[in-house]
């Protein structure tokens, strides 16, 4: 049975599909989260150096991964929608942005919560935390631009250009911040040497990352339904009030 996948490229066909599958991803997310938290908080041993505080990495690191991963996925969908004029990909980019911004915020919050016990300061100008902060500004910029443009077609394309330019700049920003950090800070505070990675901890983080991923898919599919419905409603409604002049 040859499935014509392209029919799902049309928003109207993708809408019911998204509706059917997004609840399942909530379930997967919950299961993985339970497993991940169990490993992170019950199985993983105490770190000889940081005591119990290090358990925050089971939230911080997956959230940081997700924030960067979702930005790249958003940039991919936005530029796809811009280049090939496929409206569904631009709608996906619109749906991804808020979740990505939330994970960036979580990474920043948990990063500072972890920084306080380890280095005595809520905010540490570490290369990765600073790049995370800049990534947060990029997300806010993307959402602010799309909110400021009423015409959805222009908003999609403008978002596409901005996300593409942003994605090209993310590595540049990361390396310049990393260089800036090593110059000023020297290597006294070095987040890169993570606590000795017992394999059990790695498993904990991977499970939490997968759980966050499932959660993102569920939220994004649900939000894309809202975006499609909202646009379809405006389109259908506007047609009724055509200027019947002649």
């Amino acid at each position: 049975m040859q499935v014509n996948w392209f029919k799902y490229a049309a928003p109207a066909n993708f809408f019911p599909l998204a509706g059917k599958i997004y609840p399942w991803f909530y379930v997967f997310a919950a299961l993985l989260a339970v497993a991940g938290m169990y490993i992170g908080f019950f199985v993983a041993p105490t770190d000889f150096q940081q005591g119990e505080a290090y358990r925050i990495i089971f939230i911080h690191v997956p959230a940081a991964w997700m924030s960067m991963f979702l930005y790249l996925v958003m940039a991919f969908y936005a530029s796809l929608g811009f280049i090939f004029n496929t409206r569904l990909s631009s709608m996906m980019a619109r749906a991804i942005a808020p979740t990505g911004a939330m994970f960036t915020f979580l990474a920043l919050w948990t990063g500072s919560m972890w920084g306080r016990p380890m280095w005595g300061a809520y905010w540490v100008w570490d290369a990765r935390l600073t790049s995370e902060l800049i990534l947060f500004f990029l997300y806010i910029g993307f959402m602010a631009l799309q909110a400021a443009i009423d015409d959805p077609r222009r908003g999609d394309k403008a978002g596409g250009v901005l996300a593409l330019v942003g994605a090209i700049n993310v590595p540049i920003i990361y390396f310049s911040v990393k260089w800036w950090n090593t110059l000023h800070q020297g290597s006294s505070i070095n987040l890169t040497r993570a606590p000795s990675m017992a394999s059990i901890m790695l498993w904990g983080m991977l499970l939490m990352a997968l759980s966050f991923w499932m959660y993102s898919i569920a939220v994004i599919l649900s939000r894309v339904q809202c975006v499609i419905a909202e646009r379809e409603r405006r389109a259908a409604w506007l047609q009724h009030i055509e200027p019947h002049t002649t």
């Binding site: 049309a10 928003p11 109207a12 646009r231 259908a236």
Partner: peptide, 22 residues
């Protein structure tokens, strides 16, 4: 231009609406 703008037709035939707007 009014001759080429038939809201009724666009409304009744969703493919026009879909293809162009959504």
């Amino acid at each position: 231009l009014d001759a080429f703008c038939q809201p009724a037709k666009a409304q009744s035939d969703p493919s026009v609406l879909n293809g162009l707007i959504l």
